[in-house]
């Protein structure tokens, strides 16, 4: 099964292309991720950040009623 890819590892010469390819892939991935995260709308951010606090659960009802919770 490995014979299809083994030949890539026959010699150490020129092995540097593999880490280079990996680096480029991940550098690009994170650059794109970073740019798109920067461009997220503030309204969206607020909506998502407040998900645990939006819940209509016991905690939030207690907090709203100013019951000390610690």
């Amino acid at each position: 099964m490995l014979k299809f890819i083994k030949h890539n590892m026959d010699t150490i010469a020129g092995i540097g292309i593999f880490p280079l390819i990996s680096f480029i892939i991940f550098f690009l991935f994170f650059i794109v991720l970073f740019v798109w995260v920067i461009n997220m709308k503030k309204t969206e951010i607020e909506l998502l950040s407040n998900l645990p606090l939006n819940a209509d659960d016991q905690v939030n009802s207690e907090l709203t009623n100013n019951t000390p919770n610690s």
Binding site: L33, V37, S49, P52, L53
Partner: peptide
């Protein structure tokens, strides 16, 4: 990410940061 906002009753500091640091 769940219990600290709950205990403090405040949203997480930066959702953007959470996306980047997760991946």
């Amino acid at each position: 990410y769940y219990f600290v906002p709950k205990a403090a009753n405040r949203p997480v500091f930066s959702y953007r940061l959470s996306i980047i640091h997760f991946w």
